[in-house]
C-alpha cells in the first residue's frame, strides 16, 4: 500500500493516496466531503450546466476502495451531499449503488454544513461520532480536547503546493487530522490560509496525495508562503 502510516491518540491509521482514511484495527474507512449531486444542484439553482458525471465518478472510486479493503464500517465525514435536496434528487441507480455498498457493513453519515439533515438513505445519521480514542466530526473544533482524544474532520479540502504543483493533502499534528475532499468536483484551500494555520500548528505535517502519499513538514511548506488560491 502506498499510504502513509500515522498514529493519532494511540490509534494506528493509514492515510491513503485516494484521500480516504483507513483504520485497520477497527476495519473502518472514513471519507470526507463527497459533495454528491454538485452538478445537479448548480443546474437546479440556475447556475451553469456542469458535466453530470461527478456522482458516478465519486461512487466508482469509493466502491473500488470498499472492494479492496472490505471495511466493517464506512464513515462519511459530512458534506456527503452538496445540499439537502441533492440526496433526494439522486438518480435511482445511484441510490441502488449506495444501498449495495452499504450491504453487510455499518454505514455512518456525519452531518456537514451542506447536508445537516439525514439523507433519507440507509445507514445512521449522526452529528458527530466517537470511536475509541477518536472523535469524528465535520468541522474541526478550535482549542484542545483536553481529554487526550484525537479529532478527525473534513470540511476544509486542504491543498498544498510542492515543487510547483498544488495537490490535495491530509493535515495532521499530534491531536488532529483533517482529511482532503474525496468528491470529484471539489476545489481546495491552501494550507497557508489563516483558517487552517490556526488549527494545525507549525509542528504538523501535510500528507500530500499522489501515486504515493508524501509527508512534508508544514513549517517547510509555509516558509514559502504561496498563493492561497491553489487549485488542482
Amino acid at each position: 500500500m502506498n499510504g502513509y502510516a500515522l498514529t493519532l491518540a494511540g490509534a494506528a491509521l493509514v492515510a491513503l493516496p485516494s484521500g480516504a482514511l483507513w483504520w485497520p484495527e477497527r476495519r473502518l474507512l472514513a471519507v470526507a466531503d463527497l459533495h454528491l449531486g454538485r452538478s445537479e444542484r448548480a443546474a437546479r439553482r440556475g447556475g451553469t450546466l456542469l458535466p453530470p458525471y461527478e456522482t458516478e465518478d465519486t461512487l466508482a472510486r469509493l466502491d473500488a476502495e470498499i472492494g479492496r479493503l472490505a471495511p466493517a464500517t464506512v464513515l462519511c465525514l459530512g458534506d456527503s451531499f452538496d445540499d439537502g435536496d441533492a440526496a433526494a434528487c439522486l438518480a435511482e441507480r445511484h441510490v441502488l449503488w449506495i444501498t449495495r455498498m452499504q450491504a453487510g457493513r455499518r454505514w455512518l453519515w456525519v452531518a456537514g454544513n451542506h447536508d445537516p439533515g439525514p439523507p433519507g438513505l440507509g445507514g445512521s445519521h449522526l452529528a458527530e461520532c466517537r470511536e475509541g480514542p477518536l472523535v469524528f466530526r465535520h468541522v474541526a473544533l478550535a482549542g484542545a480536547a483536553g481529554d487526550g482524544s484525537g479529532e478527525v474532520s473534513g470540511h476544509y479540502h486542504p491543498k498544498a503546493r510542492l515543487a510547483g504543483r498544488a495537490r490535495a493533502c491530509f493535515l495532521c499534528d499530534d491531536r488532529r487530522l483533517i482529511l482532503p475532499a474525496y468528491g470529484t468536483y471539489t476545489g481546495g484551500l491552501d494550507i497557508c490560509a489563516p483558517a487552517l494555520a490556526s488549527l494545525v500548528g507549525p509542528k504538523g505535517l501535510a500528507l500530500i496525495l499522489g501515486p504515493r502519499v508524501v509527508a512534508v513538514p508544514l513549517q517547510g511548506l509555509r516558509a514559502g508562503v504561496s498563493a492561497s488560491s491553489a487549485s488542482r
Binding site: A181, T184, Y185, L189, A193, S231, R232
Partner: peptide, 16 residues
C-alpha cells in the same frame, strides 16, 4: 481567499 467552492477546469476536462 478560500476557494473550496470552486474547482479547477482540469477536473471538468478529465471528467468529460
Amino acid at each position: 481567499t478560500g476557494r473550496q467552492a470552486t474547482f479547477s477546469s482540469d477536473i471538468l476536462y478529465d471528467t468529460l
